[in-house]
Design a protein around this nucleic acid. Structure first.
Length: 500
RNA sequence: UCCUCGGUAGCUCAAUGGUAGAGCAUGCGGCUGUUAACCGCAGGGUUGCAAGUUCGAGUCUUGCCCGGGGAGCCA
C-alpha cells in the first residue's frame, strides 16, 4: 500500500517519504533529471541529480519511459515553481515496471484516437479532474436528498414496456416472457415509492436507443429522479433550484483545484443561487419572436464575422512573412496556423448555424416544442439556469397533469443550464386523477394492461405529487465547462462506440 | 434517416493540378532548474478505398467506407 499520497505532501515538508506512482513526464538535463510522478492524487516533480543518487539508481531513473511505474524516496521541499507546490529531492529510486511506448503523448490528440484509448486517457490530468468533480457532484446529489428527508428507491433496469412510448429502447429476450427493455426512466416506479415513503429518489443508469449524435447525448447515462407526494409544480420548481444550487456550491467549495485545472470560469458558477428565473412557455415564445432575440443573434454573428476576418488577416500576414523569417520563428507560425484553422472551423460552424437559429426563433409556431436552438437563445437572457414551465400538453408525456387554469397546458417544467448547455432537468406535476390518466393513455395509444399497476396508485388514495429527472452527465459537462458529455463518464456509450 | 465538415508519417496538422513537408513522439549525442524544456543528427508515407478526367491528381469528378458537428428525440 501507499504511505504518503501527493495530495498530502504539505504535511511532510522537510521529511523523507516514499512516493509510488507512474512517470507522467520527464525532462533530462545532463546531470540533472526532473521526473514528474503521477499517483492519482496529483503530480510531484522529483528532482534527481547524478551526485545525489547511486550510479545504479541514476541508470534506473534514466531508463524510465512515460507511464513506467516506480517508487521514489527522498525529502519533500516546498517550491512555488512546482505544480502542486511541492518537490522531492530524490535519494533512492526503484523501477516496478518499464512501460512500452505510451500512445498518449503530452501533445494534442484527436477525439477518435483518445476515445479508442479511453482506458489510458483517464490517466490524464484533465480527465482525472473531471472524474473527481463527477464524484463530488454525485455525492452532493445524494447528500442533498438524504438531508432533506428523501429515501433512495431503486427502480428496475429491465422493464416490460417503454415509459413514454415515444423513445426507441434497447430490447432483449426475457426468458419465456417475451421482450424486455432497458429502462429509459425510473419515474413510474418512483411514483409508487413516493406513495409508500413520501419523498424518494431513484438514482441509476438510463438507456436510450435513439440515434442522437450530439454533444449532449449518450446512449447510456445516469439520471437522478426525485418524486414527492403532496408536491405541486411550484414545490417541484423550488426543489429543483435549491437542488442545482446546492450541487454547484458543493463543487465550488470542494473542487477548486480541479476547476482550475479545467480553466473553468468560476465567477459564473458563483452566481448559481436561488431563485432562478421562471418563464412560462407562452412568455418564452414571445421572447423568441422578439426583436431583442433577433438582435442578440445578429450581435453574435457580427462578432463571429469580425473574429474570423481578423484571424484570416493574421493568417495571410504570417504566410507573407513565412519565407523571410528564421527557422525558429517558422515553428511558431506553424503552431499558430493550426490554432487559427481550428478556431476558424468553429466560427464557420457558428456562422452557418446562427442565421438558421434566428429564422427558427422568429418563425416559431406557438404550440410546438422548443428546439435545441430555441432553448439556447432563451438561456442567453440569463446568467442563471432558467426554468421554463407550462408547456403545451400535446408535446409532453401522458402522465403530466393539465393546468387547471388552461387545459391546453401541462404542469411541466424544464431547467435549462446557462452558456448553451441546454436541458439538465425535465419534470412535472403528475396526473393524479384516474379517469384523466385513462384518457391520456388512450390518446397516446399506450397498452393499458401494462400500466394497471401504475393506475392502482390513483385507485388507492391518490394525492397530488410531482418530480423531475436530472441528467448527471449534462450537469457535469456544464459545471466543468466541457464541450461534450463523452468526457463526463469513465466509459461513454455513444451511437458509434461501445468500446473500450 | 437527413444536413454539414473532414480523412496526408505513431500523433496533431501544412502543401495554386507540377519533386509529399513541419512540430511532437521514437533512437543516438549534448546540457545541473526544466515546466507540453531546449540544441544537433537519424529512421519513419500505397495521401481512407475504388474508378474516372488529365501529359501529370493529396488537390478535380463519381461511388463506397470511417469519423466530427448538427436536426429530429431527449437528460
Amino acid at each position: 500500500m501507499v504511505d504518503v499520497y501527493i495530495q498530502d505532501l504539505a504535511a511532510h515538508v522537510g521529511k523523507e517519504v516514499t512516493l509510488k506512482g507512474w512517470l507522467y513526464n520527464g525532462r533530462e538535463g545532463g546531470k540533472i533529471m526532473f521526473l514528474i510522478l503521477r499517483d492519482g492524487t496529483g503530480l510531484c516533480q522529483c528532482v534527481a541529480t547524478q551526485d545525489s543518487l547511486s550510479e545504479e539508481d541514476w541508470l534506473k531513473a534514466k531508463s524510465l519511459t512515460q507511464e513506467s511505474s516506480f517508487t521514489v524516496t527522498g525529502t519533500i521541499r516546498a517550491d512555488e515553481r512546482a505544480p502542486g507546490g511541492h518537490e522531492m529531492d530524490v535519494r533512492t529510486l526503484d523501477v516496478v515496471a518499464i512501460a512500452e511506448e505510451y500512445p498518449i503523448t503530452p501533445k494534442e490528440h484527436g477525439i477518435e484516437f483518445l476515445a479508442d484509448r479511453r482506458h489510458l486517457w483517464i490517466r490524464s490530468r484533465r480527465q482525472v479532474a473531471i472524474l473527481r468533480i463527477r464524484h463530488t457532484i454525485i455525492r452532493a446529489i445524494r447528500n442533498f436528498f438524504d438531508d432533506h428527508g428523501f429515501t433512495l428507491f431503486d427502480a428496475p433496469i429491465l422493464t416490460p414496456n417503454a415509459v413514454e412510448g415515444t423513445s426507441t429502447l434497447f430490447e432483449t429476450e426475457y426468458f419465456k416472457l417475451g421482450k424486455a427493455y432497458l429502462t429509459q426512466s425510473g419515474q413510474l416506479y418512483g411514483e409508487s415509492g413516493a406513495m409508500a415513503l413520501g419523498k424518494i429518489y431513484v438514482f441509476g443508469p438510463t438507456f436510450r436507443a435513439e440515434e442522437s449524435k450530439t454533444r449532449r447525448h449518450l446512449t447510456e447515462f445516469w439520471m437522478v429522479e426525485p418524486e414527492m407526494a403532496w408536491f405541486d409544480l411550484d414545490d417541484d420548481m423550488k426543489l429543483a433550484e435549491d437542488f442545482i444550487s446546492h450541487i454547484v456550491q458543493a463543487v465550488l467549495k470542494e473542487r477548486p483545484n480541479e476547476l482550475a485545472e479545467l480553466e473553468r470560469d468560476t465567477a459564473v458558477l458563483e452566481k448559481i443561487v436561488p431563485p432562478f428565473p421562471r418563464v412560462s412557455y407562452d412568455e418564452a415564445v414571445e421572447m423568441l419572436h422578439s426583436d431583442k432575440t433577433a438582435r442578440m443573434v445578429d450581435d453574435r454573428i457580427a462578432a463571429a464575422e469580425k473574429e474570423a476576418e481578423e484571424l484570416k488577416a493574421e493568417l495571410a500576414s504570417n504566410k507573407e512573412q513565412y519565407g523571410k523569417v528564421k527557422e525558429w520563428q517558422r515553428k511558431k507560425f506553424d503552431a499558430r496556423e493550426i490554432q487559427i484553422n481550428n478556431r476558424l472551423t468553429d466560427l464557420e460552424e457558428m456562422l452557418r448555424n446562427l442565421p438558421k437559429w434566428k429564422e427558427s426563433a422568429r418563425n416559431f409556431e406557438h404550440g410546438g416544442d422548443l428546439g435545441g436552438s430555441d432553448e439556447t437563445l432563451l438561456t442567453w437572457y440569463f446568467d442563471k439556469p432558467v426554468i421554463v414551465h407550462r408547456y403545451p400538453a400535446a408535446v409532453k408525456a401522458f402522465y403530466m397533469k393539465r393546468d387547471p387554469q388552461d387545459e391546453s397546458k401541462a404542469l411541466a417544467m424544464d431547467v435549462l443550464a446557462p452558456e448553451g448547455y441546454g436541458e439538465i432537468i425535465g419534470g412535472s406535476q403528475r396526473e393524479d386523477n384516474l379517469d384523466f390518466l385513462l384518457e391520456r393513455i388512450e390518446e397516446h395509444k399506450l397498452p393499458k394492461e401494462v400500466f394497471e399497476w401504475f393506475l392502482d396508485l390513483r385507485r388507492y388514495g391518490s394525492v397530488p405529487h410531482a418530480g423531475f429527472g436530472l441528467g448527471v452527465e449534462r450537469t457535469v459537462s456544464w459545471i466543468c465547462g466541457l464541450d461534450h458529455v463523452r468526457e463526463t463518464i469513465p466509459f461513454p456509450r455513444l451511437i458509434h462506440r461501445n468500446r473500450p
